[in-house]
Design a protein around this nucleic acid. Structure first.
Lengths: 184, 184, 184, 184
DNA sequence: GATGAATGAGAATTCATTCAT
DNA sequence: TATGAATGAATTCTCATTCAT
């Protein structure tokens, strides 16, 4: 996960993975059929966690606004715990050979979008969010905002060193992204 | 640009670039020292265009809300005209060997963030945007929302085939991302 | 070693080395970082043998004249056993990118010069060689004479096919190069 | 000449030659059919000068000892004037693809050897040099001693900075290499 | 399970040579 | 004569994958 996060799919060598894991070169091939399967596996694992959180939010209590806010807060918290995982999740969605175009990673991404979009849709129906919201666009907006903000935190462009700074990031994100969906 | 957009940095062969450009293999090396420099150059070119547009918006007339909305609309329009350019700009920033970590691409990204952040800062000062906005987070939120939404359009997850659909995306983006910054 | 000797540094392809060694192309890169390191390694190995012989002569018994004569005889004998090694040793020292200018090969060459020069210096002090001998020049003269004479044997310009011819070359070399250092 | 001297045949690029000469890339091909011809031409020029000097010595006045001494002194003097030319002369004899094995450079080298060998042969016949001298070996010994000593001067291993140091090198060379051929 | 040498196809890079201007 | 862009074959280097131990 760390190596993929650092160098991307093509840039990461099996040798790097083995070294990082502290095992012999060949052992990687004992556990994974090939490089694709390795990445799929890593991505799937990360996405599973994230999707589970999205689903938990979606199926949990509270208004749509609160569910979306929870997702934002969760994402930022995950970033704090495992920034590398966030990078894999965020960065390997697209630039992977088969991942985005077809295959499980894309499906999982679409699933994430659709869960968020559903929250928006329900919220709009219930009057918790503006009636004319575009669920899918709202979802990609939210996820994209999370992605780049977190990436910028990883890169040190957005400050997220202290507890207080992280709280400020969370609040700003929620205010803008969820607040922007509030009924007029 | 097209080839990088299509396959990503590592996935794209010099041979592809040459073929796409309709020139001989070796000629690429007449103009670029190596693959890195080639991408760097392509990215720089795209960023320049985008930065110019950001600056034009920033220095143009209108309230901060209108400037930010203009940026969103411009980005979506660029996407319609040159989706490949958008992909390079958006997707190749990070997973590239030296691009994001250090060097000109990162600087240019920071510049983009800072231009948008400045608009937000001024808007907040003038009362056009909420006073407690976090300029940098607002900027990465806006740019990230653009990125993933456009990417999703490229990938066909967000519908953007017709004129009307594109208008809807624009409106939704602006409503959420700029609307979310409105004073309470 | 054989391939370098045959074609020189630039003329020898890694593929040649692999074929000659009877291994797969890539394996060469398993053992050597790159072509430079390969040659460096080959040279170092050869020099080590030669330096060892020089040292043995220097530390062995006999007058300086006898030590120098021993070196000449040894060099000619090595040539008979392994002409390719001699060629690498002799010919690839200089025209190689980094070898002679700086780095270990040059150091080793200087060491060879200095061992021979020391023998000369001691011999001069003991009255076995002329008192006004220039040790360093004497050393490069001896080594250079060996080099070109052996090269010419390799090239067939100096006859060295039979046992008797080789003996004649040895004697002539020693007479001229060592004899030329005798006290007047 | 300088570029060939610096990098050897394969290591020298046409671009280097053009840059060193201060002319455009293509112009090199206006004057030389190809790289081989360029090197041949350079070598031939250098050898011609050297061969002419050897011949002049051979056909000039004085005993064989004096003729050989003159050659040594001339070579050292040439080195002082044009060290690069010496390197081409010395270093490109062998490691060139076709040069030494067959072709004009090898012929010229053999000619040089034979001129010197003739001087030795005559000197031996006249009693100026030892009767049992091996003319060819004596020639390669003399030329080899010159080669490596001059190379070592170029490389800074043998000191040749001042007028006095150069005189000392000349004397040492002559004493050893010519002195070693003196009748016993 | 574990190791790391061995393989070879694929991609980057170099550079002599050609050619239009 | 002079220029330097254009070409593409030759070569180095990389790295996923296999395999014997």
């Amino acid at each position: 996960m760390r190596v993929f996060a650092e160098k991307g799919y093509h840039g990461c060598r099996i040798a790097d993975v083995a070294r990082q894991a502290g095992v012999a070169y060949g052992l990687v091939y004992h556990y994974f059929r090939n490089k694709d399967e390795l990445l799929e596996s890593v991505c799937a694992e990360q996405w599973t966690i994230f999707i589970r959180a999205l689903r938990a939010a979606s199926e949990g209590p509270g208004a749509a606004t609160e569910q979306l806010a929870g997702i934002c807060r969760f994402a930022v918290d995950v970033f704090r715990t495992a920034p590398a995982a966030v990078r894999v999740l965020l960065l390997e969605v697209v630039p992977t050979p088969n991942a985005f175009r077809a295959g499980s990673t894309r499906q999982t991404f679409e699933e994430a979008v659709s869960i968020v979009a559903d929250i928006v849709r329900r919220g709009a129906a219930r009057g918790e969010l503006r009636a004319d919201a575009e669920p899918t666009v709202a979802a990609t907006t939210l996820l994209g905002a999370l992605e780049l903000t977190l990436t910028s935190m990883v890169a040190g462009i957005v400050r997220g060193g202290t507890e207080e700074e992280i709280e400020r990031v969370k609040r700003a994100l929620v205010d803008q992204v969820v607040g922007g969906l509030a009924p007029r």
